[in-house]
Design a protein around this nucleic acid. Sequence first.
RNA 1: GCUCCGGUAGUGUAGCCCGGCCAAUCAUGCCGGCCUUUCGAGCCGGCGACUCGGGUUCGAAUCCCGACCGGAGCACCA
Length: 486
Amino acid sequence: MKRERRRELPELPGAEGGVVMRFAPNPSGPLHLGHARAAVLNDAYVKRYSGTLILRLEDTDPARVYPPAYEMIQEDLHWLGVHIHRVVVQSSRLEIYYRHARELIERGHAYVCECTGEEFQRLKLAEQECEHRGKSVEENLADFERMFTEFKEGEAVVRLKTGVELSDPAMRDFPIMRISEAKHPRVSARVYPLMNFAVAIDDHLLGITHVLRGKDHIVNTRKQAFVYRFFGWPMPEFIHYGRLKIEGVALSTSRIKEGIEAGKYSGWDDAALGTLRALARRGFRSEAVRRAMLEVGIKQSDISFSWKNLFAYNRELVEPIANRYFFVASPVEVVIEHMPEFSREVRLHPSYPERGSRRLVVKPEAGVGRIFIAEGDYAKLRQGEFVRLMEGFNVVIQEKRRHWMRARFHSLELEEAKRRRARLIHWVPAPHAVPVTVVKPEGRDTGYGEPALGEVEPGDMVQFERYGFARIDEAGERIIAYYAHP
RNA sequence: GCUCCGGUAGUGUAGCCCGGCCAAUCAUGCCGGCCUUUCGAGCCGGCGACUCGGGUUCGAAUCCCGACCGGAGCACCA
């Protein structure tokens, strides 16, 4: 038995008084591996300290909202085992942001700026104030109201008076409110807070004690600090973890969406994607994903995500439940001469005889049996070679031709094959072979599976011997399996 | 370019704040053995790292400086 040795994450500073944390994705699509880190880590800390986890949907950019995502994100979190105590949607809180923006204007900390982006950038880089900065509070208040009625998108923003001489140009009078005329799926509005404003206000109002997020937000944290300062609010504890480089799968939500529309991907759970639903479809267990994320931790240095580690964690979970079957990819026919009748019961799982067995049968016609082997094995075999057909019998290759082989039955005993150090390969009896397609991130393998595959059901996890673990996606006359890992 | 971070085995991680018990932890990977009708699993054994150079100190993975390497941000996105 394997016990779960879970390394503890480092303590959160100042967690004694309880923790309130949040997971704050943009509802632009379902969750992927990158989100899983933030979700799992926040969840793990909240559970450790018996705190509260808030899901905050940050939909203040109407152009980037994908309406189904509101639901999908919650489904994904449920799958991940992340427990959400409260859900907050920013588009329902616009009045709160407006009120705080007015307050900042009244206190002289913000102003309505009509510069174009380029104009302001030029002035900013020259450490010069723009003409709108010196307006009176009354003028600013009036101009703010004009943002709701008169100004068009891009014509005015509210800027925070942080100072134009700040050493980091990014900090200089950054904007906190803007106009967007894109249609929002949930509300009808045209003035929206920018992320750094909405986040700071919400984090404070929701009583967030610890913010755990990627280091791409470090600059945002500094910007948000200005908002806290102007309101006189205490800052939560901020922790930034490093970038997680994930290779081999598509992660960018916007690019995935384009790919789906262009027919490049079958959907959000296409095997080539790094979305959680794609991993689930391939048979990954959420516990394996959680463990991988916990293992990765909260260090600030950048790391490469290791698929091998995830595979190993998942294999540990899935190996005991996955029944064994033979599947030959790109089948090559082998005719076996002098073949006797053959029939054998083979365990579905070598460690669990009680789970039952499947039957491998070769019924020769006129002394000739027919089977399939995988093209990869065919390529390696040489004429005259003695080879063991796993769970079956031994044959000697007589003749190797283009995509076809002739062999002769030799013997039944495994000992004979061991003594000769023969190659052991898997195979499928040709009659009643079941067509199987295995969908992999890189493409798909087609071939045949053994007749017993007729009994599997969608959702079953199987191990195709010498091939890898896969999840049955469609069962029946023909099988479609999604490949997980070796 | 500017601002700011970070660098422990193939990968991830512990240790670094509070120098010695660190010839450096754990997982994964790889190699070998046992077991096993393959793969996998299990058990046993092994491989493998403190980026480099100075400094402080009796003593540095741990503190300081520099170099090198890597990364983030510099949006009217989040």
